[in-house]
Design a protein around this nucleic acid. Structure first.
Lengths: 152, 152
DNA sequence: ATGACTGCAAAGCCTTTGCACGCAA
DNA sequence: TTGCGTGCAAAGGCTTTGCAGTCAT
């Protein structure tokens, strides 16, 4: 059965990511580290604005541009996934090294994003990925509809 | 086997859409009709800019704002699907009444979008949709990676 | 000391909105 | 004639870029 809520936060991811960044030649700057550590504490995708606000609340102000720069670097290293679920705003979440991941349901009424996972779906996609003429690196499944609170 | 290319254009869709628009109380304006007719001739998703350019080339200039307005109305009536595959640009394609549809592979290097379809994947998603706590109205699957031309 | 990192502000895109004119009904 | 539809231009929102000061190494 697909569970609505999935993995808990993975502080190990943050360490892993910081190491990979260092290996890639990046220095340990304060802004980037703050973004990485925040992402490591999240269960689901955050927008750049979410990240900026969370960090501001914990007195670790980071300029919006730095948030975007960090996210871009992390995405280049395949440490985060960028996902676009509509509303014109990108969201980012840690990409776990073991390939364990989830997908998202988006309420088109209130914008809520809820993660879910489904092994059978993963199997279908993996099988499919081997058959197509693309080198498939990632995949996203987005279910659009109405959440429990928004349907009448 | 998942085919790379899918349905051919469906002029019937354009008629259908124009009727549904009329039923919904919309008048038969020139700009909206042009957008609908163009979409009916497409095999895959177009961006608003694509649409504007195609129409300009065939001497049927439509203001960008009118394109967006038409697309929004069509999406509200569930006649088109809006899909976001990254690059910050939304794409739109006809939503076929019989539920037949495809998904997309996106080349993150060159931006090419290629449609594919896979019945097994559809089955997984349908089964899943019945199990979750959402009223699922639509779903999108996006495979990210490198197309044949872009992989080294 | 050197070059990367950051913050700030400005610029870039895509998309939406306001408004006056034109057209369908 | 009414008020919806359209075009144009301006405004909005998210994201990227330029630049100068700051910090890691």
């Amino acid at each position: 059965m697909a569970r609505a809520h999935v993995h808990t936060s993975q502080p190990e991811w943050a360490e892993h990511a910081l190491e990979r960044l260092q290996d890639a030649g990046y220095r340990r700057g304060g802004a980037r580290s703050a973004v990485v550590e925040l992402l490591g504490r999240q269960d689901c995708a955050l927008s750049a604005q979410d990240i900026e606000e969370h960090l501001r609340r914990e007195d670790r102000r980071v300029a919006r541009a730095s948030v975007y720069r960090a996210l871009e670097q992390l995405a280049d290293l395949r440490l985060v996934t960028k996902l676009e679920v509509g509303q014109g705003t990108a969201r980012y979440e840690p990409l776990l090294p073991d390939g364990d991941h989830h997908h998202h349901m988006v309420c088109d009424a209130c914008g809520t994003v809820v993660p879910f996972e489904d092994p059978e779906l993963e199997k279908s996609i993996e099988a499919l990925s081997r058959r197509v003429s693309f080198d498939v690196a990632e995949h996203d499944v987005v279910l659009h509809g109405a959440c429990k609170d928004c349907r009448e």
